[in-house]
Design a protein around this nucleic acid. Structure first.
Lengths: 215, 215
DNA sequence: AATTTTCTTGACCGATTGGTCAGCTTGTGT
DNA sequence: ACACAAGCTGACCAATCGGTCAAGAAAATT
């Protein structure tokens, strides 16, 4: 599954800092393994090896595999929600939605494994974070729909369905993480270069912003 | 995992027809279980139960779990490629791409489990169908890029990146299958009605077709 | 009717998994 | 220095998994 990545950094340090560091190493390794193998395909041994720890040690910090998985998913969810900052307080659709696309594309580029774990979780019926979908995500979505609707009512953009516009934004931006392997294969097997990422961003923004602007 | 669905239809029939029927029942059950649990989370026993057959019988038709999985993925891949029919021989972008969106949205509606299995496979690095990505899918993609480029050169649409436009089309249409659970949750827990599906289709088509039309 | 082939199945097996635990080491407070 | 708590780990276990197999049932062929 790859060589261990954890650089123990054997310095004397406070117990609290060491704990936080170990937990973080476990979460990072778990995110990678869950993304590559799925929840069912991942094993605690794989995660332990990648984190450079004995398996029994994982169970000292996280009682069960499901407990560890839940923490990974929740971490992603928070990153995911934070991307909305540029969405609010925007004077117009081009700024707000354009900024949101930039933010979400950047997350796809920097946290592809997190995005994959989230996608996997939802695809399998969200057994772990169903309550988040029904509370936090629903509220978040309703709020953004209201913002978009306000723009529409003010004549700043075309009268399309705000809800399905949001779905399009999620789908297009997360595609570059979730289907990153496919994108890379169709890119000659090489990861997207910086310029190619920029082209992706620009294309997505151009099509969507032109697609929603007032007639 | 749900009650068995296989209706044996105990009629005297040719051996060949019975075999085809059994294989189809297994594939359908497998598609559902793989979509719901992932490859690692799925068990042959789950598939057998859903198909209404003893587990040992599955191994008579499909030697291994991986063999069965491969057949499921290949079936989806073919349906997936067939959706391109309306893409070719189209006189203009609106007809060709609009028709492609319709076809792919219809697949998401009718074969959500297939789409999920495909997504899962790609997300985990395409361990089984990597060769398809590198041959069939790459050729298919290059061909469609050429068509789009031709439209651009003829001034029939805006000069955007054909490749990333394709990614957008895949992402937006497959989102309604792969993230169907999330869409349903945000729809008050109820599946999209016929009218809501139509709104989804119309919104996707409107935004993209307006987004790519010649300035 | 006899025989061969295809299909079906319960019982079984080695391997792997998530999780446990007793005992050890290391750090902390007094 | 001492005692206690926190952190760590190899060895182990019950449960489950994919897959096998021998023996029988059902159909096709002769």
């Amino acid at each position: 599954m790859a060589p261990p990545t954890a650089q123990p950094e054997k310095r004397p340090q406070s117990r609290q800092a060491a704990r936080a560091q170990t937990e973080s190493a476990i979460l990072t390794a778990a995110q990678t393994v869950f993304a590559e193998a799925g929840f069912g395909g991942a094993t605690m041994q794989m995660i332990a090896d990648l984190a450079g720890l004995p398996k029994a040690n994982l169970h000292y910090y996280y009682a069960t595999k499901e407990d560890l998985y839940r923490h990974v998913v929740q971490d992603i969810f928070e990153i995911w929600l934070d991307a909305a900052a540029s969405f609010d307080h925007a004077p117009d659709p081009a700024t707000g939605i354009g900024g949101y696309i930039d933010a979400k594309m950047e997350i796809s580029r920097r946290h592809p494994n997190g995005s994959k774990v989230w996608a996997s979780e939802v695809m399998h019926g969200a057994p772990v974070i169903q309550d988040y979908l029904e509370s936090t995500l629903r509220d978040w979505t309703d709020g953004r729909i209201a913002v978009i609707q306000k723009w529409i009512d003010a004549g700043q953009m075309a009268p399309i369905s705000p809800r399905h516009l949001l779905y399009m934004l999620w789908a297009t931006t997360q595609h570059y993480a979730d289907f990153g392997h496919q994108v890379q294969t169709l890119n000659g097997g090489k990861p997207l270069s910086k310029a190619e990422w920029q082209t992706a961003k620009d294309t997505v923004k151009q099509i969507i912003l032109r697609g929603i602007r007032a007639a």
